[in-house]
Design a protein around this nucleic acid. Structure first.
Lengths: 242, 242
DNA sequence: CGGTGTATTGATCCCGTTCAACTGTTGTGG
DNA sequence: CCACAACAGTTGAACGGGATCAATACACCG
């Protein structure tokens, strides 16, 4: 059922082939990419790059989830983005990394050396257009999240987060639509600009209100999607985040 | 002293010629842009485009300041970006606008019809690379702002805001470094995720602490830049926002 | 002058934080 | 198999920063 990924397979069998930076590339262009790519994996919790490091590689997330975050001197941490399969790490034309990149789950990256990749971006319009398109989408997503961070209540933040998880849970499992929280309470708190206690309390409230049901602490079922969407604070058409 | 802008002048005399999307373009490319550009102005307070509208034009801000914002159903508003001269409006490859764009001051835009511009982006790599570069910078700026919105205190928010105004006030006026707040208290509040009362109080506190001095309600002088930077909550090297 | 809109200041309230105790789960070693 | 340590998560009680409500000050303009 789950997608089996094998590093030996060519790009043709890659699970993110049609969503990642290479989505628009033709066979000829794929050959160039395939020649220079390599895979690397990180265990959950490992830091992939630190803010301030000079960027050695551009990468796409193939499997797993990574996060972008910034920590203030006194330890307060804000997550500024979740990197899901097909998402891209690196800014062509910029030397350094400006946020910490961390593996949230075990992560597999498809990686390119900086210099050769920047040359490819120059040469392959299909590639650079896709990179730009993805950057613009991320920009919109970041701005949507700014609204959440600046103006939403704790309940609205939690509802928006759950709704986001549900919406992009691309794998519609067998019968009951069961979903998994990919983050710990602490990570959720850092994503939403809250404390773990508030996250825990609000999740308990949504449970008590009958909107969601938890089987264990990580996986849940939606009982009342309308009520959930109502609780996000967005208008009907909704903010489309990522 | 101030830059005199005349719509009749060619792009050669344009005040944003070397910072805007056209920064990298050569003479030949400029000719193509010049042929299709037109200028348009908006008065302070006017809405330039509404969220959801289909985008008819791509534009660069030439003079003045515009804002990007989102308003929730119940009226809560979050500003998600300030558009200063040379900043770009529009997402090549996307049909609709996803945030309200409003003129904060009187604004002059250099404007291109959507279809012809998208064709130019396809054809001129210098143009598309600059657009991508600017999008990536804005993405970083948006993420920096997410840290502010999610984790900073009211005082830190105000200090960061003032510091940003000071840092990018490119016009180092005559003798005393006098700066102008381009936004009303309400706009500052919507930018920082605060209420106008809190903004007012924190500005008064910074005044009482001797960090800044107001001549009138819009213009001020920095007395203690170190203390200001200290109050931002960022580490020494600082977050570079826009 | 008053009128209108913006900004400041004060008093009170409340949501989310903080501090703290407890629960539940998992893994390790005797 | 149990003891217990280590850690993630939940729940409670009290606090406090920023919001809310309200009154006042200030600037601009007729």
């Amino acid at each position: 059922m789950t997608f089996v990924f094998n590093e030996r397979d060519g790009c043709g069998k890659c699970p993110i082939r049609h969503r990642a930076i290479c989505a628009r590339c033709d066979d000829e262009e794929m050959e160039l990419l395939e020649k220079t790519k390599s895979y690397v994996t990180f265990e959950a919790g490992q830091t992939i790059v630190w803010r301030g490091d000079t960027l050695k590689y551009f990468s796409s997330v193939v499997l797993g989830i990574a996060s972008l975050s910034r920590t203030l001197e006194d330890g307060r941490t804000q997550m500024v983005g979740l990197l899901l399969p097909s998402d891209f790490i690196g800014r062509p034309g910029r030397e350094t990394v400006d946020f910490d990149v961390t593996a949230v789950t075990d992560v597999t990256l498809c990686r390119f050396e900086r210099k050769p990749f920047e040359r490819l971006v120059e040469d392959l319009p299909h590639l650079s257009h896709r990179v730009m398109e993805m950057a613009l989408d991320e920009l919109s997503a970041a701005r949507e999240w700014m609204v959440l961070l600046g103006r939403k209540t704790a309940r609205e933040k939690i509802a928006t987060f759950i709704e986001m998880i549900v919406r992009r849970d691309t794998v519609p499992t067998h019968d009951a639509p069961r979903h998994v929280l990919p983050l710990t309470r602490e990570e959720i708190a850092n994503f939403l600009g809250l404390t773990i206690e508030t996250v825990s309390r609000q999740l308990s409230l949504m449970k008590k209100d009958g909107i969601i049901t938890f089987s264990d602490r990580r996986s849940f079922v939606i009982n009342d999607l309308a009520a959930l969407q109502d609780a996000t604070g967005d208008d009907a058409d909704g903010g489309v985040i990522i």
